[in-house]
């Protein structure tokens, strides 16, 4: 096992999030109807950061348009893994019907988390459209899912472990990659 190699530092993560915020606005042709839902744990923090940026860019308060979507109960691997703990879901008070929901996650890998998120979303309402923004896309998709905005494309081997560290959870911002051996929540996403 080699030592983790840092792929993105704090400044690069900040720039990537700013770019993603602009991309979201551009693709939506403005801020109308946008709702951000992050997938816990780290996706929810990233959604909050994107909401802060959107507030800064547009001057419109996004604090009531950001939330968290837990997908635990919709996962397709509940049976074969140790019991997974759930996280709170927070949906904006105005709901998601006819909104443009941007799902936010830290790592896009197999795509199974996003598949679960789409199911979870369908149980909560009927968005006009659903988009996907991720900080890192490491490839190896197992489902026909792709992101609309990507902070960093990170070609990786399946045996490698990608970790997303965020100030809110881990005390610092970084994206690291290392070869097999280590375990962590982010890499499994």
């Amino acid at each position: 096992m080699t030592a983790p190699r840092t792929v993105l530092g704090p400044d690069e993560i900040a720039r990537a999030l700013t770019r993603i915020a602009h991309e979201i606005l551009e693709a939506n042709q403005g801020p109308d109807d946008l709702v951000l839902l992050g997938i816990p744990t780290r996706g929810a923090h990233l959604a909050q950061r994107l909401a802060d940026r959107l507030t800064g860019i547009t001057g419109i308060d996004f604090s009531a348009r950001v939330g968290a979507l837990d997908v635990t109960m919709h996962r397709d691997d509940l049976r074969g893994r140790p019991t997974r703990a759930s996280q709170p879901t927070r949906i904006p008070a105005d709901g998601i019907d006819d909104r443009v929901v941007v799902l936010v996650d830290d790592v896009l890998y197999s795509g199974r988390t996003i598949r679960a998120a789409l199911d979870a979303l369908a149980d909560l309402g009927r968005p006009r459209a659903v988009r996907l923004a991720v900080l890192v896309d490491r490839g190896h998709r197992e489902l026909p899912i792709r992101a609309d905005s990507v902070g960093k494309n990170l070609p990786s081997a399946r045996t490698e472990h990608v970790s997303i560290l965020l100030e809110e959870v881990d005390g610092r911002d970084a994206v690291t990659i290392e070869s097999a051996g280590a375990t962590g929540e982010a890499g499994a996403a």
Partner: peptide, 23 residues
């Protein structure tokens, strides 16, 4: 505490129109 926390997340279903989880 872990069980009560899980119940706390399950409790959110009370506010939903569609009361069904596939777990």
């Amino acid at each position: 505490i872990a069980l009560l926390d899980l119940a706390e997340d399950m409790h959110q279903i009370q506010d939903r129109e569609l009361k069904k989880l596939p777990a």
